[in-house]
Simulated assay, not measured.
Amino acid sequence: MATLRKRNGKWQVQVRRQGFPVQTRSFVSKADANEWARTIERQHDRHELGPDRKALKAMTLTDLVTRYRDEVVPKKKGSAVETILLNRFLRYPICQKTLYDLTTADFATYRDQRLSEPKHRSDKPVNPKSLKRELSPLSHMFRHAVVEWEIPLRNPLDGLKLRVVDNKRERRLRAGELERLLEATKKGRNKLVAPLVLFALETAMRRGEILSIQFRHVDFERLSLVIPESKSGYSRIIPLTKRAVSILEAVRPAGAKATNLAFPVTPVAMRLQWDRLTERAGIDGLNFHDLRHEAISRLFELGLTVPEVASISGHRTIAQLMRYSHASQEAVRAKLIDNDGEPGGHAFVIDTARGQHTVELID
């Protein structure tokens, strides 16, 4: 913000901006003073002026992360998981750096350290894709600090190289795994885990969407469910199978209010429950999100069209939807074998160096 005052026959102008040193200059003409002030303010807006060293040296990365965690994260849908990620990040030495001294090289060191560390309860190191998800809230934090808090800093993550391999998951339930999962739920204390698993397979909904269901969102007569806000930020209405409705009726306690959660389980608790469940069932490499892959693939196998499946799953593009559709190899193989046994229609002969081959075209 610029302020002008006349002093000793000259116009003195000051431009103040949080995080930047005060700019002061005197002019004989008021018009010149105003023009200079506008030029400095435009340079501030375009981040062409260097930040105030004192302001950035007085604030550490810990201060910035803590403020972001306490003020911004609680308003986000994934606040519980993001808080855990940020709390873990605060334990690393990089957080002791001041914002003035913080560089991309510091995050490169942190990246290499994280990629060499083993995961929780696993001998495998953290993969680049997981680390990219962990760095995502930090990148948003730096952008938020510049725009909302007017802290003049550069996002050190912009130049960080992180080679991520697109290891698209194609995991589906194998023969007998669902039965083993349901049998293992009997040994757990939380009786909502089994209904959660079955409901996920019936609806292809995300875990967060399922855990946010309130009974007022369910139309038991029309067999439909309103999802007020999905991961993509859009609402949608999905049809429910009779089995899905029966699951909701089974978990609805007597006298339940419309605003009661159908599955009163926190995301963190569900993640821990799932880890214990798969361990008891002796199943490796199966995530809860893989149930969404399984459900979407089953919808296609039932004969639903791409638009119909997309209306249920909530995907906005065909490319996104196809990442979740994995045809059963056994079903494809069975169809190919059936076609091999059918009588042919037209036939033609192909001449090759190895002789003549007759090929039949199936009508």
Rank of each mutant, 00 (worst) to 15 (best):
R354S: 12
A108C: 00
L277S: 09
V218S: 05
D70P: 05
Y234D: 11
V22L: 11
D106G: 00
G285N: 10
A262S: 14
M1V: 13
A194F: 04
L178W: 01
P74S: 09
D70C: 02
L299E: 08
S26I: 00
S313Q: 05
E71A: 09
T259D: 15
I337S: 07
D290W: 07
K129W: 01
D284N: 11
D63S: 05
L102E: 02
R91D: 03
K54D: 14
Q329T: 15
G255F: 05
G159P: 00
S212R: 09
L361R: 13
R154H: 10
Y324I: 12
T62S: 12
T104M: 04
R133N: 04
F220L: 10
L157W: 02
N339E: 10
V28E: 09
G188E: 09
D363V: 01
P253N: 02
K132C: 00
L61N: 03
A31R: 15
P267W: 13
G344D: 09
S230P: 02
S325N: 14
P239I: 13
K57L: 14
E209P: 03
P137G: 05
R323A: 07
I84V: 10
T266E: 11
L49D: 07
D340Q: 12
R53M: 02
V359N: 06
A262D: 10
Y234K: 15
L361F: 05
P118N: 11
F107A: 01
R298M: 01
D351S: 13
R222L: 08
A55F: 15
R38S: 15
R354W: 04
H217N: 12
M205L: 15
I337R: 10
V268T: 12
M59C: 09
E330R: 10
V349N: 04
S325V: 14
E301M: 06
T203L: 05
G50H: 05
I296W: 01
K231T: 11
L286D: 01
K257G: 09
D52N: 11
N190L: 01
F263Y: 08
T103P: 00
F89M: 11
Q273W: 12
V309Q: 07
R271Q: 12
E229Y: 03
D166S: 15
F288K: 09
V245Q: 15
I318K: 02
K132W: 09
P307D: 11
T3G: 08
N260H: 12
R42L: 10
W149G: 02
D101W: 04
F348Y: 15
A33G: 12
G188A: 01
L135D: 02
G233T: 07
R46N: 13
L173E: 02
E183A: 09
H315F: 05
K10R: 13
S328T: 13
A145C: 06
S116I: 01
L157M: 00
R180C: 00
A262Y: 11
F20V: 04
N339K: 14
H346V: 12
E342L: 15
R207D: 06
P343G: 07
F107W: 02
K335M: 04
E221G: 00
F89D: 06
E342T: 13
M205P: 04
T358V: 09
F288Q: 07
I94R: 03
